[in-house]
């Protein structure tokens, strides 16, 4: 991990203003933000450790635990809500046996909700990694999950 981290961090020596892009790059590389990585970011940028965590924990994008291979984001936008997003979420939770914010034991899926992915006309929808599954019904949930079950 150290080598991968220092490769990401090396252009950012002393760059306090670049904290968010740094956190994004480190998360891209490591999949999440381990404590040691945040310490290293603090050292590289010259920011206090507490500040690094303060910023990282403010933004929804950053994770402090490893994620599953696939990230399932159930959209909770208004359009999705009035078209039954809650039931999609419940069904997904039932199918995976985890609740929102958790990762399955086999590290295959992480289940999250997102404020809105902007596909409101296709509500209710779910984003799996970068793909959007549109106009879902609870019955379709197992099917869209099994599509990724390689």
């Amino acid at each position: 991990m150290e080598e991968r981290l220092s490769a990401v961090l090396s252009p950012y020596e002393g760059r306090k203003d670049a904290l968010i892009p740094i956190l994004q790059k480190v998360q891209d590389e490591l999949g999440y933000l381990p404590d040691d990585a945040m310490l290293e970011i603090a050292k590289t940028t010259g920011l206090p450790e507490s500040r690094v965590y303060a910023v990282a924990s403010f933004y929804a994008q950053f994770r402090f635990t490893p994620r599953g291979k696939h990230t399932i984001m159930v959209c909770r936008g208004t359009a999705c809500h009035v078209r039954g997003a809650e039931r999609i979420l419940e069904e997904t939770e039932r199918s995976l046996g985890i609740v929102e914010g958790e990762t399955t034991e086999d590290q295959k899926y992480t289940l999250e909700t997102v404020a809105c992915i902007g596909c409101c006309a296709l509500a209710p929808c779910v984003m799996i990694d970068e793909d959007v599954e549109a106009k879902l019904t609870p019955q379709m949930v197992p099917e869209i999950l099994s599509g990724r079950n390689e």
Binding site: M38, S50, R51, Y53, A54, F58, F64
Partner: peptide, 28 residues
Amino acid sequence: NINAIDYAQRGVDSIISTLANKPIAESR
């Protein structure tokens, strides 16, 4: 000028925290 603690999380979960909520004795 020590900055051992800062705001962390947000909204109703906001908390005064060290890095990763470690015990304050482990901070600077």
